[in-house]
């Protein structure tokens, strides 16, 4: 039982740092670069993607034995698309302003390779509880990464956080940060920082 619990925790923690979709695996870059210009957008995209990821990993893991190998990819896409459409309607109905600012990037979650990738490499080979732990970890890992990226871009690009003005009039916003080029620059710098931290962490453990 404790081995089982340990396994679950390690499945969950995997996505947070070790195999973080954005900073480690560098997958799902389309929404990452496109919608992280404000923190509200980054958070909403992270949560929407997490919901789709968790739901579809559960379903795929449950019915994996029923799906013939040759049509597994189209089957996954259908399942993912169902949940994405649900999110799309849900946001339009209850969070219209978020739906308007994310616009076409919500339907595009269908083709986020993070989601399809996890079905193929994890959910289709592991039991439901482990798939859930993996999806939760990956989802939170994706969300915090988007939030960090959008925090940097919104702060430097507009001097605000979550739409609240943080920096005063003395600060001249660096417009490039909210443009696509700013996304690449921020992502590159953040990955570099993550690599340095990652390296130090491994060095520490070898010192013991």
């Amino acid at each position: 039982m404790s081995v089982n619990a340990k396994q679950l925790i390690s499945d969950f923690k995997n996505g947070l740092w070790q195999e973080n979709p954005i900073f480690r695996l560098v997958i799902g870059m389309c929404p990452t670069l496109a919608v992280t210009n404000t923190m509200v957008n980054g958070l909403a995209m992270g949560l929407a993607t997490s919901f789709v990821l968790i739901s579809s990993e559960i379903v795929v893991s449950l019915i994996k034995k029923l799906i013939p190998g040759d049509v597994r990819i189209p089957s996954y896409i259908l399942i993912i698309a169902t949940f994405v459409t649900f999110v799309d309607y849900f946001l339009k109905a209850f969070y219209p302003s978020i739906a308007a600012s994310l616009s076409l990037f919500v339907p595009l979650i269908v083709v986020n390779c993070l989601i399809l990738g996890r079905q193929e490499t994890f959910a289709s080979q592991n039991p439901v509880h482990r798939s859930f732990a993996d999806a939760l970890g990956m989802g939170i890992g994706f969300t915090w990464a988007l939030l960090l990226l959008s925090a940097v871009r919104e702060l430097f690009g507009m001097g605000s956080m979550f739409g609240l003005q943080i920096l005063g009039d003395w600060y001249r916003p660096m417009v490039i940060m909210v443009l696509p080029a700013g996304a690449f620059i921020t992502l590159g710098i953040l990955i570099a920082i993550m690599n340095v931290i990652g390296k130090n962490a491994t060095n520490d453990t070898t010192c013991h």
Partner: peptide, 9 residues
């Protein structure tokens, strides 16, 4: 009513 222009610009 609706737009998708760059935030801040």
């Amino acid at each position: 009513l609706n737009h998708q222009e760059t935030p801040g610009l």
